[in-house]
Design a protein around this nucleic acid. Sequence first.
DNA 1: ATCTAGTTTATAATTGTTCTAAAGTGAAAA
DNA 2: TTTTCACTTTAGAACAATTATAAACTAGAT
Lengths: 135, 135
Amino acid sequence: MKKIDILKKLRSSGLRPTKQRVEIAKFLFEREKTFHFTVESLNKLLTKKSISKIALATIYNTVHAFKAAGHLSEVEVRGNKTYFDTNVSNHHHFYDSETAELIDIDANDIIIQKIPKAPNGKKIKNVEVFINLKN
Amino acid sequence: MKKIDILKKLRSSGLRPTKQRVEIAKFLFEREKTFHFTVESLNKLLTKKSISKIALATIYNTVHAFKAAGHLSEVEVRGNKTYFDTNVSNHHHFYDSETAELIDIDANDIIIQKIPKAPNGKKIKNVEVFINLKN
DNA sequence: ATCTAGTTTATAATTGTTCTAAAGTGAAAA
DNA sequence: TTTTCACTTTAGAACAATTATAAACTAGAT
């Protein structure tokens, strides 16, 4: 993804393309593979990479803004930290608790044959499959 | 589950049946249906129910001890709070984000037909299906 | 160039959880 | 029984992740 597209992406979702947002967006979206992170890990990586220090609060703000705009998804992971994913399409995850690492699973790689119907007046929003790994 | 069984349950897992543990265990395990809770919600319910106040730290200690003994499981739920479940068998969950409520799904009510193989030297520990509900 | 609503920032506040160390207590041994 | 002591409980401090606050800053319209 090119820088011009980053600016479009931000503008089209009503986000003023500030220096910080562009920097974070480039870091997150200018890559081939999907990227999983926590705010803590993102902060560390950004600090290492850039000259200008971005405040932690800004990283929180930005990640939430990107999520609200549909550019990031939040992953179902047990534990205290919140994991985000640059892959916003419907998909699933492996989780390696040894390394606290997430790995995407394409939606087509899991087929669910039988599923219970939603309770009393509720509907199914989405189905997430989470595969815990061991060594 | 009767009180005598509660005592057995505690003793057999190497947990000294103290007043607090017995009280919490009775509250959690002497019921028909499985019970989902966070430490916060459990604390509120216990405070409402009992004469004697149990310290929050004790509730944390006890819940962790019960989990370590295999009497409770921790549920995969996104967010900051940790959810526990008195159902320790292999099963799945509906999650109603409106009410922040979990509903058990029996393992037999979901059949997965196709599943990817685990990456590089890893094995699959378990598969958790999480069905998000909407209205 | 000026203005202003939206943004960033440092810091405080909040929330969920764990740690600490002192006081209390089951239950085994005397 | 009483004594003893490792295991528990407890209040409060400490910690970690996140959110709120309010002052300074800035993108972009006027």
